[in-house]
Design a protein around this nucleic acid. Sequence first.
DNA 1: CTCACGATTAGA
DNA 2: CTAATCGTGAGA
Length: 200
Amino acid sequence: MDRSFYLKDTLQIAKDLLGKYLVHESSEGRTVGRIVETEGYLGVEDPASHAYEGKRTERTEDQYRSGGHAYVYLIYGMYHCFNVVTRGEDEPESVFVRALEPIEGKELMKERRGLKEASGKKILELTDGPGKLCMAMGIDEEDSGKDLCGDELYIVWPSREEDLDIQTGKRINIDYSREAKKWPWRYYIEDNEYVSRKDR
DNA sequence: CTCACGATTAGA
DNA sequence: CTAATCGTGAGA
């Protein structure tokens, strides 16, 4: 995906990223996951965003880069969250990737997730949540700020395109954000079993 | 320096 | 439902 893809409207990108493939070429091997659930975070006007009212700190600095960079942070002292930065430089908006469907490198994903013997139902737990997918894909704070238009961590179109049944809902776990928790900026592929929460 | 707080997850 | 777990950043 080239730079221009990431400079558009954030909610449009949140929708457009569904069905695309996130690829990570790491020293341990290559993993690929199909994006099935996203949320838009609209920067200065969004009480749920780390950049609300222009708040800018060392931790959130990468969100101020131009569209097409990664913004990764640690949450609850133990999990990582992966975001795709959108819009131009100093427009701190992003798309939070909440779930993937494993496509390639499933053995490596199982190892990283500590589910070596996993099969059947357990395979669903590889990437069905923001912290889980970072673990499975080997994404951590080292990856924050990386250019997604590069050749290490990037996003591509699937070989064959398909029609997706896209659903919308409220974003998850942002109770601290007052009225913003009602805004329907979460997108997911209907009936996809890797979506993190099936409830509304 | 202190301390409250998470864009989560696993497990009871 | 709650505990786990710790870097960050606001405030003293």
